[in-house]
Design a protein around this nucleic acid. Structure first.
Length: 427
RNA sequence: GGAGAGAUGGCAGAGUGGUUGAAUGCGACGGUCUCGAAAACCGUUUCACCCGCAAGGGUGACGGGGGUUCGAAUCCCCCUCUCUCCGCCA
């Protein structure tokens, strides 16, 4: 959520930054108008309350000092009190309504892109920052897509998963399941060693949590909802883990907080019909190891860089070629101010595909979720900065291994670093 | 699912209609003392919003929402959550 004070005091700047995202009309004017009405009401309302408090106090004093509670003097005060009460009963609902409207509008606004985020319309204007692992690019000509090799090896089951669920679900079988498990453990161990505290959060979460990280109210159709409860399947562990600290005031000495979490993730993938219909790339359910950081605002830039590194290290350990993309303003996610994607090489389609997305949300989620910190000796509180990134998407990592480690005879080598986890060298 | 109990400041824990933003204790912070520390003593110690250049002033908040009243932490209603017992269950 954007700071209403910032919008109030600097509407042109806010407008300009929002416009960098897209040509959508972010109409700040209605917010400003509602805001000034609300403040007007608040001023008159609080003046009335002040008088009402005075009356209450003075009635109390008079009664205690012997005035007749049924007498004329107290009667007059009561009458005035009643008059104020009736005025307040008109003002209060109006003010409440205004606040709700303002809140509604604010919740719809995306984060401001960071000044350093490259300006661009869509993913075509993302900026490639660097590549890693060219020396590991597979050399042999014909590489089967991972779904074909997986099917040959008998490690996936698509048809039966569709039968028991729906399209865009998969079951891993035998070595496939073991490989998935091995990858999860491998990733977690690495991130724990890098200083992240592991969490296994709830996978069903309430609406407040989704609002806190920005998936609601705008993107309700992207998550699965349980009809009879205010509970949703998590689209990413970012949501429960960041919301761990919702409505808390943390002691500054606790920062930075680093968490990693393995969870399944559930996405409706509405609007992606016909895209990536085969394989492990785009599923309604997939596994992910997520990294979440809650940090002091002064350090969030550096924390962002190291977050990306932590995700990269997994690919480096697995010797999978990748590149780092800096998203342009037009491709930036709703809550992000700045975002780096890591894209892994998929030789069967000769493309780099997103395997991690590392965002700095700055204070945007912190405002929505009300996550603050207090520095000893300093008056008041400040909002933390929140960051998150995949470390990594497990299914896509498996796809990358199946393709990049494919051998001419149709077998797949297991990356060395993973062998101790899977306890075999070849699939 | 059935029956009961409860939700107060960082924590513990008073408060059942009138200067109660809230006693008391602990903790934390500052000071005195000390070579230093402990102890003791003194003091401080919530957050948000609004008005104001400022000094300052005001409002709101005792799980959440409504109601009664001139006045609610205190009374009434609804909701949420927690705990205990029974049932069920991985």
């Amino acid at each position: 959520m954007l700071d209403i004070k910032l919008i109030r005091e600097n509407p042109e700047k806010v407008q300009e930054l929002l416009n960098r995202r897209s040509e959508e009309d972010y109409a700040l004017q209605p917010i400003l108008e509602l805001d000034s009405k609300q403040r007007e009401l608040e001023t008159s309302r609080s003046q009335l309350s002040a008088r009402s408090n005075e009356i209450g106090k003075s009635i109390g004093q008079k009664i205690r000092s012997g005035s007749d509670p049924k007498g004329a003097e107290i009667g007059a005060l009561k009458a005035e009190g009643n008059e104020i009460k009736s005025k307040l009963s008109e003002l209060e609902p109006q003010e409440k309504e205004l606040k709700a409207q303002i809140d509604n509008l604010l919740l719809q606004l995306p984060n401001l892109p960071d000044e350093s985020t490259p300006i661009g319309k869509d993913e075509r204007e993302n900026v490639e920052l660097r590549r890693w692992g060219d020396e590991y690019l597979p050399q042999n000509g014909k590489i089967l897509p991972h779904w074909d090799i997986g099917e040959k090896l008998g490690i996936f089951e698509f048809g039966r998963a569709v039968k028991v669920a729906q399209s865009r679900f998969v079951s891993l079988v035998g070595a496939g399941a073991a490989l998935e498990r091995a990858l999860i453990n491998f990733m977690l161990d690495r991130q724990i060693a890098a200083g992240y505290l592991e969490v296994m959060p709830p996978i069903l979460i309430n609406s407040n949590s989704l609002t806190g990280t920005g998936q609601l109210p705008k993107f309700a159709e992207e998550s699965f909802k349980c009809q009879d409860d205010d509970l949703w399947l998590i689209p990413t562990a970012e949501v429960p883990v960041t919301n761990f600290y919702r409505e808390e005031i943390l002691d500054a000495s606790l920062l930075p907080i680093y968490h990693c979490a393995y969870t399944p993730c559930f996405r409706r993938e509405a609007g992606s019909y016909g895209k990536d219909t085969r394989g492990l790339i785009r599923l309604h359910q997939f596994n992910k190891v997520e990294l979440v950081k809650i940090v002091h605002p002064d350090t969030s830039e550096a924390e962002h860089q190291s977050l990306v590194q932590n995700a990269e290290e997994i690919l480096q350990a697995l010797k999978l070629p990748y590149r780092i993309i800096e998203l342009c303003t037009g491709d930036l996610g709703f809550g992000a101010a700045k975002c780096y994607d890591i894209e892994v090489w998929l030789p069967s389609s000769e493309t780099y595909r997103e395997i991690s997305s590392c965002s700095n949300c700055k204070d945007f989620q912190a405002r929505r979720a009300d996550i603050r910190f207090k520095e000893a000796g300093k008056k008041g509180t400040q909002y933390v900065h929140t960051l998150n990134g995949s470390g990594l998407a497990v299914g896509r990592t498996m796809a990358a291994i199946l393709e990049n480690y494919q051998q001419p005879d149709g077998t797949v080598k297991i990356p060395e670093a993973l062998q101790p986890y899977l306890k075999r060298e070849i699939l």
